[in-house]
Amino acid sequence: WTGRERDAVLADTAPHHVVGTDGRAATADGGARTPGLFLLPTTSGSTGVPTVLARDRRSWRIGFDILGALPGPVLVPGPPSSTLYLFGALHALHHGLGLVTRGRLDPTDLPDGGSVHLVPAQLSALLDERERRPGGPAPRVVVCGGAHVAPGMRERVARLLPGTTLLEYYGSAEHSLIATRRDDGPLRPVEDVHLTVRDDVLWVDSPQSVHGRFIRGALLPAGPGPTTVGDRAELTDDGGLTVLGRAATTISSGGTLVAAEEVEQVLRGVAGVGDVVVAGTPHASLGMVVTAVVEARDGVPDRRALRAAARAGLSPA
């Protein structure tokens, strides 16, 4: 966090005590407490400062049981300041599994026959390493969250890690687990989560939802019923879910609306791609042209492979 972000979070949470990383504690003029809350996750706000949410233990325990026990030991290669890695670590402890934590992913740390929690960029790095050096330890389950896993990456998992189950989940800080997918199956809502789509926007009614948000030391409760984080989505006739990204990341190019996240998902599946950011850049006739900035791993990815993936996985726009 920047100083501005930290000050904003402390103003909204109004804590009784602040303990710095240097071990020094300061007493603050804390506001009213709400019993039962154990975690205040933050999300990026549209004003440029984090939004402080309020979660109780029960809401996460529901998710622990929905995800179920995994083969142990479980590797969590990321900082617990991220709720994705914190969830993975507490999930393992909840089910009595052996837990290994690391600050970053090292393929030599992979638990042979166990499980690992990853984000798609880490999964891509793992698959690149497996292509360069076949063999070595392989987890029985890869749990992947934080962003959509492109079909091309799922194909690489099946090819390079044939004995590994890919368990992908879609969720949010506000709703925790919303839907899961195993290997190449459809993305489906988890138990007791009810989804509706209104004007192409996904609304979620879930017992895992946060209690509300903190503003200036006071809890602003979330109202009853479904809420949304603004994700665009489609529901299939058989109950499957397709997430299309946030409306705010839509690029208007030549009269066609292009979801930036859909382009990112396709290009992330190309070997050698560390990560991708897609945005619109000005164009004389199209208004905006869809532009991908590719972070390379081990040199520049093959441009022909990038273009082939785009042609195969995306519309001409």
Rank of each mutant, 00 (worst) to 15 (best):
A28Y: 09
I178Q: 04
A179N: 08
T250E: 10
R156E: 15
H148T: 14
P226Y: 10
T228M: 13
G280Y: 12
T236C: 05
L314M: 09
G146R: 02
L167H: 13
Q208A: 14
M153C: 08
D237M: 02
T281N: 03
T21I: 05
R188G: 02
P224L: 12
I178R: 06
D205V: 13
I66W: 14
A147S: 14
S46R: 15
V76W: 00
P77W: 06
F64M: 05
G113S: 13
R216C: 08
S59K: 03
S46L: 10
T164K: 15
V210W: 00
R246A: 11
S46T: 15
T291W: 14
D109L: 09
G96Q: 04
G30N: 07
G48K: 11
T236I: 02
E261V: 11
L166D: 09
R55H: 00
V9P: 07
D302N: 09
H95P: 11
V149H: 07
E295P: 04
G136Q: 10
T108E: 14
L286I: 01
A248P: 05
P226G: 11
P139Y: 01
P301C: 07
A279M: 09
R140H: 10
D231F: 08
A28F: 08
V190D: 09
T43E: 00
E295M: 13
A308V: 04
V290H: 01
D7V: 09
S285Y: 08
A125C: 02
A14P: 08
